[in-house]
């Protein structure tokens, strides 16, 4: 291919298309950000531009009012996301290691693997109601634990499926020599598998953290008040008296900015976690 006029025309067309894609993907976040700094009276005024006439932090001050509940929702979300991520990755790593190493009869490990896969694909709404009733039975409604168990049960299948794909390429030789040294599965898991699997575990953790932080259905079902998470709080801005545009924008920014930054820094792991299932599966 000669690097002539045609090449230049093509690469500038390519650049233009990429720019368009970036505009479509990112412009809504810019709108959100400016709206969170827009004075309340400007929301209903026609002809207000993209950039507010003056910037104000009143909405942030309002949602973070010391007498308000926002801090609690942030803490709830942090507790639930952290605990769910740790537990899901731990349980998932243990289970996928066992599935990869056990010689179960009747292709039992394949069946268990498929079972984990299926959980990803049925409507969570089918489970939400009975899960609500179950938690009511155990008096766990509106507790962190109820949400954490739900999130772990939703994400463990992801983790198992992902890590199983990694175990296919895992070198057995290291484990075998440790086995000869009289090392049982617990010590092999802790001393050999975990350190070598660290990148895969990180990918699983990143993906789980996103799922848990953003999850709405289960959280809104079992934790409507005291253990309420940020996504559930946002939906509350709408059913109240009209829509509180300013507070809603500020709250949305509060929930979006951490994940956006987190995504920028963990992009490699995130992309790997998302693709391994489809590309290897």
């Amino acid at each position: 291919m000669s690097r002539g006029l045609g090449y230049m025309a093509e690469s500038s067309a390519k650049a233009a298309l990429i720019a368009l894609a970036l505009l479509v993907a990112l412009a809504p976040f810019v709108v959100l950000f400016f709206n969170s700094l827009r004075p309340a009276d400007e929301f209903l005024a026609q002809g207000a531009g993209l950039i507010p006439s003056r910037l104000t932090f009143e909405h942030y001050a309002e949602i973070f009012d010391p007498n308000g509940d926002t801090f609690r929702y942030v803490i709830n979300s942090l507790i639930i996301t952290t605990a769910s991520t740790i537990l899901a990755v731990l349980f998932g790593a243990l289970a996928s290691y066992a599935l990869a190493r056990l010689q179960l009869p009747f292709k039992l490990s394949i069946i268990i693997g498929i079972l984990f896969l299926v959980i990803r694909f049925y409507p969570k709404i089918t489970v939400a109601l009975p899960y609500f009733l179950l938690m009511r039975e155990f008096h766990l409604l509106d507790t962190h634990l109820a949400v954490i168990i739900a999130h772990v049960s939703m994400t463990v299948p992801f983790v198992v499926w992902m890590l199983l794909a990694f175990f296919e390429d895992f070198p057995r030789e290291l484990e075998q020599s440790a086995m000869i040294d009289g090392c049982g599965p617990i010590r092999r898991f802790v001393l050999i598998v975990i350190p070598l699997m660290a990148p895969a575990l990180a990918a699983a953790a990143v993906l789980t953290a996103f799922l848990s932080w953003n999850e709405f259905l289960m959280a809104s079902t079992v934790a409507p008040n005291a253990a309420k998470t940020l996504p559930v709080r946002i939906s509350g801005f709408i059913t109240d008296k009209g829509i509180l545009w300013g507070s809603m924008s500020a709250m949305s920014t509060v929930i979006v900015v951490p994940v956006a930054l987190f995504a920028l820094f963990t992009q490699r792991y995130l992309a790997r976690g998302l693709t391994v299932g489809a590309v290897k599966g």
Partner: peptide, 9 residues
């Protein structure tokens, strides 16, 4: 980015 933010947001 559109994919990583909460669907509610």
């Amino acid at each position: 980015l559109p994919m990583v933010v909460a669907p509610v947001a």
